[in-house]
Design a protein around this nucleic acid. Structure first.
Lengths: 241, 241
DNA sequence: TCTACTTAGAGTCATTCTGACTTTTACAAA
DNA sequence: TTTGTAAAAGTCAGAATGACTCTAAGTAGA
């Protein structure tokens, strides 16, 4: 085995999602892409990523390339899929292990924007390098599916948030209106958030309760994989007591 | 990049599930393991697998090692996860892309059994090589989770089956009794199976209707990944009209 | 100061879904 | 002909869900 130099290359890429106000003021689902500066696909947009270092964990590599290209730290990080079709790179054989991440909107404002790094609307992407359009489509599908049965929406928000903000995440990601009353009932029954006791002041209406994510609840998202030492960041990054 | 000889090695392994009658006659969930014939972990049991060939698709490699060690063809095949912790192999760095598969019980009887290939009860495994206990735990968790929201149970059965046989799959995998009436209602409402028109004769009671899997329904299990040309076998292997 | 406006938050009601259970049917074996 | 067994259809109460109403509590403007 190990056919001299012509071995299979291993890369790690990340699909990074954030919510940001669009030109019209409405928040929209966006993701950062990097422009390729070499062949193949030179000049085209692609997912941030790079080769896996020998002494680096997979999730670490995902976080690193995320930090390098966008200067952001994820509030949620999960492995998406390993893509390995024979023809996904024209000349060599590359297997890409892809992660997907959520970053808070406030963070995303501080993100790098440059000639070669730009944010795009997730539902209106250009033609990307390699099979990256398929990868983004799958990541979007996973995000939308998982949002409904798991409780990851706060990955888009800051430390504390109102139920209206949380509901807006659902509305934007799922692209459909959500009834405020039923949403409140669903969230409160799930026990995934707890009231901080404080209220958001300065609104032109009754001041809403602020909530934070309930870290004590185990939503057993990944089953036995949680034994692999929390790649899913969320509270684990920020100082939590 | 590409640090001379000390690169990251890439392997593909597969967790293969089948239902087989145990010593007591009750069917149980079993999986085949192979005994390692070299260091590290020489003599210990491990998942079937091997290195990825340069001109081989990931799912293809999974099917191949499956065929080589057990002489079986999967009725369902899906990527599980890519495992890449730094310490999972003592001396070198190995990233394993793991698949999981279902094979029909009747097939499993024809499977290879030898000194170095044996089937074990999924809930009563010995200590395995590498991180393979964790991998099997995760595969079991995925199987049990997916069985409830998706319709993959017929992956354990033959071309046609009765509702009682299908229900038994649920009972054995989920390790809990399932009400026959409610199960029938659930399955019929889902539309995932269709009656063949024939009945199973020779039973000491009213002869049950035979069903087959409804291939025309898209249960959109994997979202956009279905564009990757059906690694999920099921009907696609056997001759279907 | 009062009124209009807006969303927060609590609650109602009808429909659907779910789990536990009953009844009748159709076969084999005794 | 009787008995035993599972098939298949059906019943019923409680839980979950979607559409909707009503009151509370703030700001902004008249």
């Amino acid at each position: 085995m190990s056919t001299s130099e012509s071995h299979v290359a291993l890369a790690v890429s990340t699909v990074i999602f954030a919510l940001r106000p669009s030109a019209e003021g409405e928040p929209e689902l966006v993701l950062p892409l990097v422009r390729r500066i070499r062949e193949p696909y030179e000049g085209q947009w692609a997912l941030p990523g790079g080769p896996l270092n020998l002494h680096e964990d997979l999730a670490e590599a995902a976080s690193r390339t995320l930090l390098e290209t966008t200067a952001l730290e994820p509030r949620y990080l999960e492995q998406l899929y390993a893509f390995g079709q024979l023809d996904r790179s024209p000349d060599d054989r590359v297997v890409s292990i892809v992660y997907w991440a959520l970053v808070a909107g406030e963070e995303a404002d501080r993100a790098i924007q440059s000639e070669n790094v730009q944010w795009f609307s997730a539902d209106d992407l250009p033609e990307l390098a390699f099979d990256h359009n398929l990868i983004v489509d799958y990541a979007l599908w996973r995000l939308r599916t998982k949002l409904e049965y798991s409780r990851i929406a706060h990955g888009f928000l800051g430390e504390t948030f109102t139920l209206a903000q949380l509901r807006e995440v659902y509305e934007v990601v799922l692209r459909k209106p959500v009834d405020p009353g039923n949403f409140r009932r669903m969230v409160e029954a799930s026990g995934t958030v707890v009231p901080t006791g404080e209220r958001l002041a300065g609104t032109p209406h009754r001041p809403p309760q602020l909530y934070r994510y309930n870290t004590s609840i185990d939503l057993s998202d990944q089953g036995p994989l949680s034994r692999l030492g929390a790649p899913r960041t969320l509270a684990s990054t920020r100082g939590e007591h």
